[in-house]
């Protein structure tokens, strides 16, 4: 599904290249649950951003679903966002001025899903995440865990084939974190959604089936977890 070949990323500053990623080559298949781990500044988030096409690599090639997406125009990239990729953020990033319901609805509006279809999908998600009662609340009226649930529901609304999560539990207490990770595992196993997460926590990484250890921009280890 995702094929990265010799991805490099550096920032040139006064002629000196500061490498963030060096010669990253990897392949992620449909249905995998990959955790990217490593110390601060190792390039985890940059790698995720490149996979999510939020940043372009300085060098190397990237194929998504068999298509070269190394540099893509806005329209095509947004087409992928609308249909294939869902994002989950550490700080949730719900839109403050929108209710829970509207936040989940927003990607469907961009995808131009019909209104009855929209209503049924949102109802389904609210139901599944047990947040029906909260649908008319604004994000600041929710706890962090609840906000992250809404964030995931929003990422799932457009029925993506892959979810990219940047430290999804970084701001949460451990009980809530566990709940979120269980949810991810379920989504991966039952719905077959590919998940790539960046995490600091060895424990969270154990929910997946593969770990990429990164240090100083280089993939040090690629471990499969056998459960």
């Amino acid at each position: 599904m995702i094929q990265l070949n010799n991805i490099e990323k550096y920032y040139a500053n006064k002629g000196i290249k500061n490498y963030v990623l060096r010669l990253v080559t990897t392949n992620i298949k449909q249905g995998e649950f990959v955790s990217i781990m490593g110390p601060s500044g190792a390039g985890k988030s940059t790698l995720l951003n490149i996979i999510g096409m939020l940043e372009e690599p300085t060098y190397g090639s990237y194929e998504f679903l068999g298509e070269d997406v190394t540099s893509l125009n806005e329209r095509k990239r947004i087409e992928l966002y609308r249909n294939h990729i869902g994002f989950v953020f550490q700080a949730y990033h719900l839109i403050d001025e929108m209710t829970v319901y509207e936040n989940i609805e927003a990607p469907l509006l961009y995808k131009k899903v019909g209104s009855s279809e929209r209503a049924s999908r949102i109802a389904d998600l609210l139901d599944r995440f047990n947040i029906v009662a909260k649908k008319d609340l604004f994000p600041n009226q929710l706890s962090g865990g609840q906000q992250q649930l809404v964030g995931i529901a929003r990422a799932l609304a457009a029925q993506p084939s892959i979810i990219l999560a940047d430290e999804p539990t970084g701001n949460l207490q451990s009980a809530q974190a566990e709940e979120i990770m269980t949810l991810f595992k379920k989504l991966n196993q039952e719905d077959g959604i590919t998940i790539i997460q960046v995490t600091h926590s060895e424990k969270n990484a154990q929910y997946g089936n593969r770990i990429l250890h990164i240090a100083d921009g280089i993939v040090k280890e690629d471990v499969a977890i056998l459960s």
Binding site: G52, L54, E74, I78, L94, I95, A106, P107, Y110, A158
Partner: peptide, 16 residues
């Protein structure tokens, strides 16, 4: 800014 970023990854065009 945050709202703009989120909307963009949800599939919003700049025009929208």
């Amino acid at each position: 800014g945050k709202e703009v970023g989120v909307r963009k990854v949800m599939g919003s065009l700049r025009r929208q």
